[in-house]
């Protein structure tokens, strides 16, 4: 019973979104194209190619990262 009502809610929500996207206006479609391109540029191109998390990349664990920053705080001028 509970499973049936959960499935019914899921179906209703799914068709709500599906109909919404299907009946989208011209400006809505344009804006979605821009969103998709933008997210690709931000999360794929920028994140992967230009913005690695350097501490995560260069050290294996938090202890190494902490040691490195502590050295930096002690030795920098």
């Amino acid at each position: 019973m509970a499973r049936n009502s959960a499935a019914a809610i899921f179906t209703r929500v799914f068709s709500f979104y599906r109909d919404g996207f299907r009946n989208m206006s011209d400006w809505g479609r344009k804006v979605w194209i821009i969103i998709i391109i933008k997210l690709f540029v931000i999360f794929v191109l920028l994140r992967l190619l230009f913005f690695p998390d350097l501490l995560k990349k260069n050290f294996e664990n938090d202890s190494e990262r902490g040691n490195y920053i502590r050295e930096h705080l002690i030795n920098s001028e």
Partner: peptide, 28 residues
Amino acid sequence: GINFAIGVATGIILEFEFGTNWSAYSWF
């Protein structure tokens, strides 16, 4: 809607910059 859609996620880039360009600050 137009403004929201174009602006959404542009702030995420600031978080990327924390990790790459400001890593000592981010850790601290």
